[in-house]
Amino acid sequence: MTILIFIIVLWYGGLFFQTFFLHRYAAHQTFTMSKLTERIVFILTWFFQGSNYLSAYGYGVMHRMHHAYADTEKDPHSPKYDLTVFSMMWRTKNIYSQINKEQIFVEPKFTKNVPQWKRFDAFASSWYSRVAWGVGYFTFFAYFATAWWQWLFFPVALFMAPIHGVIINWYGHIYGYVNFKSSDTSKNLFKFDFLMMGEGYHNNHHKHSSRANFGGVRWHELDVTYKIMQLLDLIGIIHLKPNTLVVKREV
């Protein structure tokens, strides 16, 4: 039971900071926050993503490129141009790394105002940090695992962020339903996105990428992350931009 709770905390903790900070803030800037709050969220992202830590700069820039070139040859991750999910994720990893290390030229429109904390990213993305988290996970499993099958969750803990990426960037462009006609293959994976905290409303997001609320198009599309953001806005931790109006579906 302890192992299952641990995995759930890692899953939803890491996922929240991915969608809240890396996606809706770094990539799309759907809200603002103070510089101090931003630094705190950087640290919390590292704490909850652990060995899976993703840089706000690398993720933000790559995701903007994904929207600009969705399902074309320039898309950093598209099932349309990769034969397998493994080849797609490997290409995604390489592009992310090159962007994060500033090894390739990126048009200024993709980097404008994307948050970057180079020193912290260098530490949080280092092999020292990733291996230390891995050792910590292993120690936790060794102490609390009470059956052999619980060790099957150990790779999930180590590769949580890539698993999240596979669900949205691969399956979210293959399976599901659409509310909006689009030039790309984005789909809404779930009628109620209990698994991905709103990220599963991928078709909605591709149609209205500047909206903080990924759901709200149909009555059953509840975006849990957006509800948390509304609370954070209410108490003054963040400030949502006025782009959260409900829109009507087209198809």
Rank of each mutant, 00 (worst) to 15 (best):
F159K: 08
Y177H: 01
P76Q: 04
N243P: 12
D184C: 11
E221N: 08
N100W: 02
I99Y: 05
F47D: 02
F154S: 01
K35Q: 05
T84N: 06
Y59R: 09
L240G: 05
H202P: 02
L10C: 11
F47R: 06
F21E: 02
I167L: 13
V247K: 12
H23G: 13
K93E: 07
M88P: 02
D193H: 00
S126Y: 08
N179G: 07
M196C: 03
S51L: 01
Y177M: 00
D223F: 03
Q49G: 05
E102Q: 13
P108C: 06
L22S: 11
A157H: 03
V85Q: 02
S186H: 09
S129R: 04
W117V: 14
F17D: 01
V247A: 08
D233W: 02
D184L: 15
V166E: 05
I8W: 08
N179V: 10
W46K: 05
F138M: 15
I104C: 04
S186G: 04
Q103K: 12
F144C: 11
W148E: 04
A27C: 07
S129V: 10
V217A: 03
S183M: 03
N179F: 09
S183A: 13
F153T: 06
V166A: 12
F153Q: 04
I7G: 09
H239A: 13
V224C: 05
V114G: 15
W46T: 07
N94Q: 13
N188F: 00
V224P: 07
M197A: 04
V166N: 05
D223H: 03
H67S: 09
G165D: 03
N169L: 07
W148Q: 05
A147M: 06
K187I: 00
A161K: 15
Y59E: 08
F190Q: 02
K191I: 09
E250F: 10
Y226A: 12
F48R: 04
R130F: 09
F138W: 14
R211A: 15
I7S: 06
T244Y: 09
G200Y: 01
V135P: 03
L22D: 08
D233P: 05
R39Q: 10
D82Y: 13
W127P: 01
I238F: 11
E73D: 11
K191M: 04
P108F: 06
H63V: 05
S183P: 01
F138G: 10
S97P: 07
Q103R: 11
N52Y: 06
H164C: 06
T30S: 14
T30E: 09
I95S: 03
K118T: 14
A68S: 14
S87W: 07
T185E: 06
